[in-house]
């Protein structure tokens, strides 16, 4: 099994280490040719404006989008969730738009609003959730299942082959979400 992790900007090494620790192959996606023969893709945290721009400039945007629409499993964290979201509530241009939710960027404010919480993520109990200048989800379409909430705000969803999280499982030593992602693929 080969997982691609989008490596144009942000915290991609952290995801790669976990995937490799779990015994799967992991490829860094920097250019279009890197997208061949992957069985799943991770969209990591970082700055969504930068990642969205580089996806287009490096001519990967359409390929990634159609692969996801065709069913390629995707795990998206923080900036990755913003890349997936169909709408951004500030009205700025959305990116891949494959996940039918609306996100609010920097929803908790600036860095001084960053925080840690613990909560259930789907069937995974008591998961450590790290929020860094994080977004949350303000609206979802009916067929989206909510995986996690913090203070009644939606911070994790699943829709078909797409998992979107506002927090950073890659910044913890808890591998359960990545394990679940790999199980989903195999």
């Amino acid at each position: 099994m080969k997982i691609g992790v989008l490596a144009v900007q942000g915290a991609f090494i952290e995801h790669k280490k976990i995937i490799e620790d779990l015994g799967a192959e992991c490829a860094e996606i920097r250019q279009k040719k890197d997208l061949e023969d992957i069985d799943g893709i991770i969209l990591p945290g970082g700055e969504s404006t930068v990642q969205g721009k580089l996806l287009r400039q490096l001519d990967m945007f359409d390929t990634i989008r159609s692969k996801i629409l065709e069913g390629l499993p995707v795990l998206a964290t923080c900036a990755g969730l913003i890349l997936l979201a169909k709408d951004i509530d500030s009205g700025e241009k959305s990116h891949l738009g494959t996940l039918p939710v609306t996100v609010r960027r920097n929803a908790y404010g600036r860095q001084l609003g960053s925080f840690k919480a613990t909560g259930d993520v789907g069937k995974i109990a008591d998961f450590p959730e790290v929020f860094i200048r994080a977004p949350y989800i303000t609206e979802t379409s009916e067929d989206v299942s909510v995986l996690a909430t913090v203070d009644s705000k939606i911070v994790g969803v699943r829709y078909k082959n797409q998992i979107g999280l506002a927090f950073h499982p890659e910044m913890t030593q808890d591998y359960r979400i990545h394990e679940e992602f790999l199980r989903l693929i195999s």
Partner: peptide, 17 residues
Amino acid sequence: QTQYELNKGLAQMLKGG
């Protein structure tokens, strides 16, 4: 300690940038 981890974390998000 939590705040320090969050602060190191923001720097991690800036990597490759």
